[in-house]
Amino acid sequence: MKQKIALLLAAALLLCSGVQARRAPRHVAPRAAELNFAFLTDVHVTPRGESDSLLRAAVAEINASAVDFVLVTGDLCNMGSDAELHCVHGILKRLRKPWFAVPGNHETTWSESACTTFGRLFGNDGRLAFRAGGYLFVGFTAGPYMKMADGSVRREDLQWVEEQMRAARPGERIVTFCHYPLTNDVTNRTAVTQLLRRYDVRFDLCGHYHTLLLCNFDSIPGLMGRSLIPKNRRQEPAAGYNLVRVWGDSVALYEKRLGEAPRLSFAIPQGNSAALAALPCDPQPAPITYERTGAALVVEDEASIYTGVAVAGDTIFYGTSLGVLKAYDVKNRREVWRRQFGNAVYSTPLAAGGVVVAGDAAGAV
């Protein structure tokens, strides 16, 4: 039974299924010649702390600049508390430019509200799209949805990303952004990068490691931004953020230290190129196989499974990221019943005495 349960969870992490897109792309006034935008990541705001005042200074600088819009790629806070999220949202609301934010691991794995407060404040559940200057920007989240787990992109989110990219206008270029770098830090990284390559994504923006870096994400240029507070205060004491310039077939990333002129970090052709191919790339993860485990495929699910499973005889009970609690008969290989919740089910259900207890992310039982 344990082998079958492990296989169920592993198989579920490989699949992708569809849900309808929840909102149409929002629009930003285009600029024909080029795009210039601010790129914030890993601001890690603590109310009334140093990061609080530094982000306010960064917002003031951005408001006084000529950038077209602002992207924020996660880790807006430290402990995922509602107080932190309200604080950072209040600061970002002072931006007089269009701004777009997706969550990072500090908004998911430590979330006080099981990821619900972010959506209520920021108006998206970690996926959003907008158009600017002939580009379609598509943002998504990569969790994680369990304490200290690796990142992963939920199947319904991958499906949504594909729906947005499929709807790109003729001649429109696609850019993606997410908190995690698209490396083996994301458990289903191969599925993600294969999808992005299929739609010729021109480059991807990310954070997570707090340092400026040009990356090779399986032949997709990856622009990793610096954090608000430097990773090493002894070597680089100045706080700051990032600026991105997009023109022609090129993209450039600049470091913008507070109170200083922008410094070019690197420029590279969009898409795959000889310059990108010269950069290291994470090796492809080994495919999941079960020959040596003695396990056999029992069931494949249409959604991500981040819960453990409860067991009662030949029946297992588990929840999914689409908010479904399921009972599955592993002996007869059939679903016994399901219950639809209003939000994702991340906690492991309990089963005893003929009763199953589970709760969704909003606390419904």
Rank of each mutant, 00 (worst) to 15 (best):
residue 46 T to N: 09
residue 47 P to K: 10
residue 50 E to P: 10
residue 53 S to Q: 10
residue 53 S to D: 13
residue 54 L to N: 04
residue 59 V to L: 02
residue 59 V to Q: 01
residue 61 E to P: 15
residue 62 I to Y: 02
residue 65 S to W: 08
residue 65 S to T: 05
residue 68 D to H: 15
residue 69 F to V: 14
residue 72 V to Q: 06
residue 72 V to Y: 03
residue 75 D to Y: 10
residue 78 N to T: 11
residue 80 G to N: 05
residue 80 G to L: 07
residue 82 D to H: 02
residue 84 E to M: 14
residue 87 C to L: 01
residue 88 V to D: 00
residue 89 H to C: 05
residue 94 R to G: 15
residue 97 K to N: 14
residue 97 K to V: 15
residue 97 K to F: 14
residue 98 P to M: 01
residue 101 A to F: 10
residue 102 V to M: 11
residue 104 G to Y: 07
residue 106 H to L: 02
residue 107 E to K: 01
residue 108 T to C: 07
residue 110 W to Y: 12
residue 113 S to E: 09
residue 114 A to Y: 13
residue 115 C to N: 13
residue 116 T to C: 04
residue 117 T to E: 08
residue 118 F to H: 00
residue 118 F to G: 00
residue 118 F to P: 00
residue 119 G to K: 03
residue 119 G to A: 06
residue 121 L to A: 00
residue 123 G to E: 06
residue 123 G to P: 07
residue 124 N to K: 02
residue 124 N to L: 00
residue 128 L to M: 09
residue 129 A to I: 13
residue 130 F to M: 12
residue 130 F to H: 04
residue 130 F to C: 06
residue 132 A to V: 08
residue 133 G to P: 11
residue 134 G to D: 01
residue 136 L to G: 06
residue 137 F to D: 08
residue 137 F to M: 07
residue 138 V to M: 12
residue 138 V to H: 06
residue 142 A to S: 15
residue 143 G to S: 12
residue 143 G to H: 05
residue 146 M to V: 07
residue 147 K to A: 08
residue 148 M to D: 13
residue 151 G to W: 15
residue 153 V to C: 12
residue 154 R to W: 11
